[in-house]
């Protein structure tokens, strides 16, 4: 059964089209990821579902209720709101209250009875490993603890649908892992349906049953992470180089590309080269030989299985680490041009 079915959602802010004809579906008991660089429309999509934003065209069905474009955004009906848990990108709490009080406050907003509230608050704090910090004022919580408290708040009402907006953004690896464990456990043990907006491909690969990549507001790719990775039918060889920027390096890189089957199989970064070779080939031996021949140029060579990040790098040309291509290169060029013109 589908918990969410969205078809042809378009959202504009003035002349800016944030979402273009975006369709997706989320089945009960699964985790679906909406991926994209910052500003790609992930949060906007979540806010549309939460009725915090309106949209211009399209329809969606969520938890059995239909929503059409052009409706006045405002409040979700209580019936739906009670079945949804939401963890925003930047969790906000009443920082003058402690963890317990925040959860109790929120539980009362969700009309939980006193006995249910006491039971649930304890349970959700335990679920996110914050039981020892319940009586600590929230402004003393670390970023990771706040994220976990936000998860606890969303779980308090035992939602049928959990919406997470970049739940591990800015977290240290340990806290990130903790949050992933919690999400996994909720999904596997309780069958909770999760909609996850993220720009962390490792997160998507580990947690999601299905992913939708938003690029410039449009869905560029959709599929199961396993299938997407499998479709590469490749092994990944990574080189870390010792230095950068000379003709000799260019020659070495050309040799690398010649070993790989075509030019698109070589992806270059600063001091970092990734080469895709067919899964069943033995080309890594040739590559290793090449590295040995130019050993002063190579720090390390690693052969590994491809990841979702590799898929997006190769097939879509999107590096989530580098964010958008627009980030520095394009803008910098535009700036230089403008500055030159305005100064002349």
């Amino acid at each position: 059964m589908d918990i969410i079915t969205a078809s042809s959602i378009t959202k504009q802010f003035g002349a800016l089209e944030v979402l273009k004809d975006f369709s997706m579906h989320l089945e009960e008991g699964t985790i679906v990821g909406v991926l994209g660089v910052n500003g790609s429309g992930k949060t906007t999509f979540l806010k549309i579902l939460l009725n915090l934003e309106g949209f211009q065209t399209g329809t969606f069905t969520m938890l059995g209720h239909n929503f059409a474009a052009g409706r006045k955004h405002g409040k979700l009906s209580p019936e739906i709101a009670c079945k949804m848990g939401y963890v925003p990108q930047q969790p906000s709490f009443d920082e003058q209250m402690d963890g317990w009080e925040n959860l109790r406050f929120y539980g009362k907003l969700y009309h939980l009875s006193e006995s249910k509230l006491n039971e649930n608050v304890g349970n959700v704090l335990q679920a996110v490993h914050l039981e020892r910090f319940g009586d600590m004022q929230v402004d003393k919580y670390s970023g990771g603890m706040k994220k976990r408290l936000a998860m606890a708040r969303a779980l308090l009402v035992q939602p049928a649908l959990l919406m997470l907006d970049e739940p591990t953004a800015n977290l240290d690896p340990q806290s990130r892992n903790d949050v992933w464990d919690i999400i996994e456990r909720l999904n596997k043990e309780q069958g909770m349906t999760v909609l996850l907006a993220t720009n962390d491909l490792a997160e998507a690969q580990r947690l999601c049953d299905d992913v939708y990549l938003l690029q410039n507001g449009e869905c560029a790719v959709e599929g199961k992470p396993v299938d997407l990775i499998d479709s590469l039918n490749a092994k990944v060889v990574e080189f870390i180089m010792t230095r950068d920027g000379s003709k000799e390096k260019e020659q070495i890189l050309d040799e690398l590309a010649a070993i790989a089957s075509d030019a698109s199989d070589r992806i270059e970064g600063y001091m970092h080269v990734t080469v895709f070779i067919p899964r069943d080939s033995t080309k890594e031996e040739e590559l290793l030989q090449l590295a040995k021949n130019h050993e002063t140029w190579f720090e390390t060579m690693t052969v590994r299985a491809p990841t979702l990040e590799d898929f997006f790098l190769k097939r879509v040309g999107v590096s989530f680490e580098k964010r958008s291509d627009f980030t520095f290169g394009t803008l910098q060029r535009i700036f230089d041009k403008i500055l030159k013109e305005t100064n002349s």
């Binding site: 800016l16 089209e17 944030v18 979402l19 994209g36 660089v37 910052n38 500003g39 790609s40 429309g41 690029q215 410039n216 507001g217 964010r323 958008s324 291509d325 627009f326 980030t327 520095f328 803008l331 910098q332 700036f335 403008i338 500055l339 305005t342």
Partner: peptide, 20 residues
């Protein structure tokens, strides 16, 4: 330009993609 550039030098700062 000054304001956007100021933000550009900030490492963690990402920009909206081409259209969004």
């Amino acid at each position: 330009l000054e304001m956007v550039k100021q933000a550009m030098v900030h490492e963690d700062r990402g920009f909206p993609a081409n259209d969004h």
